[in-house]
Amino acid sequence: MDDDDECETPSVKGLEKILFGGKRSGNHVDEVWPNLLLGDMSVANDRFSLWKLGVTHVLNAAHGKMHCQGSHEFYGSTVEYYGVPADDSPSFNLSVYFQPCADYIKEVLSSPGGRVLVHCAVGVSRSASLVLAFLMIHQRLSLLDAVKAVKLHRWIFPNRGFLRQLRALDLTLRCEEHNTRGDHHSSALEGQCHDLL
């Protein structure tokens, strides 16, 4: 097995199998990366809990949806708010938010004392996908490694459409790295990269 087989992106079915394993009971919120919390709307709607958790920023992946109260007015001046109006639907294009949200999370984590809660309704699909994208874009983890890193702390299950979009991101990032390194020993990756162009 060479290096390229080692970092092959699993199929959507393969990812679902990995995601399905492990404990399935979840907390309202879990710290899945240093100062990066992934949670549901009940913790996001509880300003006292956020204060106790030391949250300075909230990224709401269900902005404007029912039961998600998040807004600049709701949090006031104590917490910075960023809203993404995503639907938890396989046909929804979440990938347009991958880069801006990853940049936002990175900016928060780079600032002294910054702690960010990323949430949606349940904290397993929309928000989890944005956290995975951040880990892939700014922490340079493969999709598989990002999934494993988050699953150590929280059960997640992005819908099939989001998994497809994350696989496409994984391939794009691997191709960029491949081209930057000028590494032309894998014809399989070369072909996949060519198909993307």
Rank of each mutant, 00 (worst) to 15 (best):
D3V: 04
C7T: 11
K17F: 03
I18E: 13
G21M: 02
S25Q: 08
N27C: 13
V32H: 13
L37E: 01
G39R: 09
A44V: 02
L50F: 06
N60T: 12
H63A: 14
M66P: 04
H67E: 14
S71F: 14
H72D: 13
E73A: 15
F74W: 09
F74Q: 07
S77N: 14
S77D: 15
V79A: 01
V79L: 07
P85W: 09
A86H: 07
D88C: 04
P90S: 09
F92T: 10
Y97H: 14
Y97N: 08
Y97G: 06
A102M: 08
I105F: 05
E107G: 10
G113M: 10
G113D: 11
G114V: 04
G114K: 07
V116W: 08
V116N: 05
V116K: 12
L117F: 06
G123S: 08
S125N: 03
S127R: 02
V131E: 05
L132R: 10
A133Q: 03
L135Y: 04
L135C: 10
I137Q: 13
L141F: 11
L141R: 15
S142L: 09
L143M: 14
L144Q: 11
A146P: 01
P158L: 06
L163C: 02
R164G: 04
Q165N: 05
L166Y: 07
A168S: 15
D170K: 08
C175R: 04
E176I: 01
E177T: 06
H178L: 06
G182M: 14
D183A: 13
H185P: 04
H185I: 02
S186Q: 10
S186W: 10
A188Q: 12
E190A: 14
G191L: 07
G191P: 00
Q192T: 00
C193D: 06
C193V: 02
